[in-house]
């Protein structure tokens, strides 16, 4: 029970972090039709910028400054890159962001080197905050959740209370009407793209400190975020939210369980041992299979419910 609660909380905090990433990706996708392959690279940039800032001004300055910087980078990318390839269609845009992801990773190699950075949780957030049935729960995890929820609320306010928010909402439900809204569409695009990048940057700041800040962090989280968008349903914010939590929990639970199919079989009374055909398949522990599960979920979703959890559009 205690194990369950701790894992659940960890799953939720990780899921919320994933939602910080997938929400930006979803909004940009719905509004502009651009699937930003470099989205996870902005996540990585957030962590690196925050590290750089924190070496001079401390963690809290990094928390504020780094997402803003990443947002600026995002706006520049939209203005000087994406807008140019827009006329060649969505595949060209995707290729552009793919190249960009490649480039950002190499630039990070170039500037910060290939090994992980010493970017750590600040001392004031280190240590336990409360006890769950006798075992301590880390303060930083709680802080992660707080930031994510604060961000969730601000996204929601921005979507419902501002003019740009209304444009975005209209775009989410009726993508074809964006052009007709009479706003300065290129400017809206630039701001939204920058905003999405800043969100990813923020996720990078807190995720980088919680997990690891190294040049592989974009590649390790990027595909998961894409899976979330597919599983949630392309262009659905609510779907992305549910899928983020789902995958966050799935990953946290699976890495700590050593169930296997062989165990399941023996539970039914079928004995399988090393001589059984395909033994290595039956004997895989859930914890070993953890990296595959999100993708498996995606494949199953595509076969049985191609629209995704809450999608309305056929891709």
């Amino acid at each position: 029970m205690e194990f369950f609660l701790v894992q659940l909380l960890n799953g939720i905090s990780y899921g919320l972090l994933l939602f910080m990433l997938s929400s930006g990706l979803t909004i940009v996708f719905s509004l502009m039709g651009v699937l930003n392959f470099a989205h996870a690279s902005f996540y990585m940039l957030g962590a690196y910028f925050a590290y750089q800032v924190s070496t001079v001004l401390g963690f809290w300055a990094g928390l504020v400054v780094a997402p803003l910087l990443v947002g600026l980078v995002g706006m520049a990318v939209e203005r000087y890159g994406l807008r140019q390839v827009h006329k060649h269609g969505h595949v060209a845009e995707l290729l552009f962001t793919f190249g960009l992801a490649y480039l950002i990773e190499e630039a990070v190699h170039l500037i910060w080197g290939r090994s992980a950075l010493e970017y750590r949780v600040p001392p004031e957030l280190d240590g336990p905050i409360f006890q769950i049935m006798g075992s301590p729960y880390p303060m930083y995890r709680t802080f992660m959740m707080l930031v994510s929820v604060a961000m969730l609320v601000s996204i929601w306010l921005a979507l419902t209370r501002t003019r740009i928010g209304l444009v975005i909402q209209a775009a989410l439900s009726h993508p074809e009407t964006v052009e007709a809204l009479g706003h300065n569409v290129p400017r809206v695009f630039m701001l939204v793209f920058g905003g999405g990048a800043a969100l990813a940057g923020l996720a990078g700041v807190i995720g980088g400190a919680a997990f690891v800040t190294d040049p592989g962090m974009a590649v390790s989280v990027g595909p998961i975020v894409f899976v979330i968008v597919v599983v949630g349903g392309m262009g659905s914010l609510a779907g992305a939210f549910v899928a983020s939590l789902l995958i966050g929990c799935l990953q946290n639970f699976s890495i700590s369980l050593d169930w296997s199919l062989a165990g399941l079989f023996s539970w039914f009374g079928w004995m399988v041992g090393p001589d059984t055909p395909l033994w290595s398949l039956w004997n895989v522990k859930l914890s070993q299979a953890a990296p595959v599960l999100p993708y498996l979920l995606m494949v199953l979703m595509l076969i049985f419910r191609p629209k995704g959890l809450m999608g309305t559009r056929e891709g």
Binding site: L35, L94, P223, V230, V284, Y295, L302, G315
Partner: peptide, 28 residues
């Protein structure tokens, strides 16, 4: 599975399948 979709969605699914196979290769 992948060719059920086209365009951007196809691209994402192909990425997912790639990651899945990569993870499987390390798993067995």
């Amino acid at each position: 599975v992948t060719t059920k979709k086209s365009g951007t969605t196809f691209a994402m699914i192909s990425l997912g399948i790639g990651e899945m196979v990569y993870a499987c290769v390390l798993m067995f």
